[in-house]
């Protein structure tokens, strides 16, 4: 599904990712584990095209996406929940979720089907739909960011430290949502970054340990 070959990229002129190679298969959950500053966020931003790839290749389903514009990547089915959530405060939770679908050009029926699917996977969102994006706690924001990523992430879903700041109860619910997702959408490739390996133990099909921008396993 997603294949990285010797990927290097720079942040603010400093080389961060160094020869990252790895493959993520459809229907699998990949954990990217590393400490603060290891390059987890940079890896996801490189896949999203927010950070320019300096060297190496990224393929999605055999298609080279190195030169695909950053704004075109959601169009090929990559959904991204950024580390800082970034829920737009001027829109309701529902509008936030529908927004990427509307940009990609889905019609009303498709958007509604997708919302129904996401609400099945993340049932906690049902109660929040009409709430303003400005009125969410950090944990609720993480849930909304997950839901929003699933709206367009029909092939690949990138979740950047989703457990960070979640209470143990909410973290458990989030984990349940991930397994719901795998049951309901068995073809999606999921990548989750985390600094604490224990949190993804038992959920992940494969683990990449990342250290100073390099995959060490």
């Amino acid at each position: 599904m997603l294949k990285l070959q010797s990927v290097c990229s720079d942040v603010a002129g400093i080389n961060v990712l160094r020869n990252v190679t790895g493959e993520v298969h459809a229907g699998s959950l990949t954990a990217v584990i590393g400490r603060n500053g290891a390059g987890k966020t940079t890896l996801l931003r490189t896949i999203m095209g927010a950070v320019e790839i300096k060297h190496g290749t990224i393929h999605v389903d055999g298609e080279l996406i190195n030169h695909l514009k950053a704004y075109e990547r959601s169009h090929i089915g990559i959904g991204w929940a950024p580390e800082e959530r970034v829920i737009f405060p001027t829109m309701s939770v529902k509008e936030n979720m529908m927004f990427p679908c509307q940009i990609v050009g889905h019609n009303k029926g498709q958007v509604q089907d997708r919302i129904d699917m996401v609400l099945d996977v993340v049932p906690q969102l049902k109660a929040m739909l009409d709430r303003s994006g400005a009125a969410l706690s950090g944990g609720q924001g993480k849930m909304v960011a997950l839901g929003r990523a699933l709206m367009v992430g029909t092939r690949i879903v990138l979740l950047d430290e989703p457990f960070q700041g979640l209470s143990p109860a909410l973290a458990r619910e989030y984990g349940e949502s991930l397994s719901n997702l795998r049951n309901s959408q068995p073809d999606i490739a999921i990548i989750v970054t985390e600094s604490n390996a224990a949190l993804l133990h038992g959920i992940a099909d494969q683990t990449f340990n990342i250290e100073r921008g390099e995959i060490t396993n």
């Binding site: 991204w80 970034v86 990427p100």
Partner: peptide, 27 residues
């Protein structure tokens, strides 16, 4: 700005360009 898709895109880019682009907005 509040109700049209183009307006929402403008607000989104204003709020966080990188994330807006990640959702498909041509900044």
């Amino acid at each position: 700005l509040k109700h049209s898709l183009l307006g929402k895109k403008i607000v989104a880019v204003t709020h966080n360009k990188e994330v807006a682009v990640g959702m498909g907005v041509d900044a």
